[in-house]
């Protein structure tokens, strides 16, 4: 924010990495805090330490554990993960659009220089996003018909 730049919106602050320094410092302190707590509770205190064979066993409600815990898990969880990727990437595309789409930037020239004011760029963007959401809707509908969301 130390230097000013001129954009289509007017004079505004240039991106400066120093805005993010507090986060870096906070990250370091948080990591120290987490590691410190784990370390303290592990070494510093005088606490009971009696290892018995039963205590070191996996807990299965008092029964002797049967087989390994590295189980195969349901394929549907995998399906959920794939769906999440699709929808989350779509969300990531929508965020930048949402930030700039309808802010009052004093309607700068670039918005209607293409067609002399008849169709502005904001109209085109609106239609494009409708198409984008439309394809998303079709994909969603297809997944629904395929029974992907069915948890049975």
């Amino acid at each position: 924010m130390d230097t000013a730049i001129q954009t289509t919106a007017g004079v505004e602050a240039a991106f400066s990495l120093s805005d993010y320094f507090p986060i870096l410092i906070y990250l370091v302190i948080v990591l120290l805090f987490a590691i410190g707590t784990l370390f303290l509770s592990h070494f510093l205190f005088v606490k009971p330490r009696k290892e018995t064979a039963v205590k070191m066993m996996p807990y299965e409600s008092g029964m002797d554990p049967i087989g390994s815990a590295r189980l195969q898990f349901d394929i549907r969880f995998n399906l959920i993960a794939i769906l999440f990727l699709v929808f989350d990437v779509e969300l990531l595309f929508l965020y930048p659009w949402a930030v700039v789409a309808y802010t009052d930037l004093g309607d700068p020239l670039w918005r209607n220089e293409l067609t002399g004011g008849m169709i502005t760029i904001s109209h085109i963007i609106f239609l494009e996003i409708l198409v984008f959401l439309g394809t998303l809707g079709i994909a969603y509908f297809y997944a629904w018909r395929k029974g992907v969301f069915q948890w049975r």
Partner: peptide, 26 residues
């Protein structure tokens, strides 16, 4: 919580087992 016995069972993956609570709080 601080003074309780800390059990790290034999069968766990030690590195990740210790790391996970740190990741959660951080």
């Amino acid at each position: 919580l601080f003074l309780k016995e800390e059990i790290i069972p034999k069968h766990v993956d030690k590195l990740f087992f210790v790391l996970a609570p740190g990741v959660a709080i951080a």
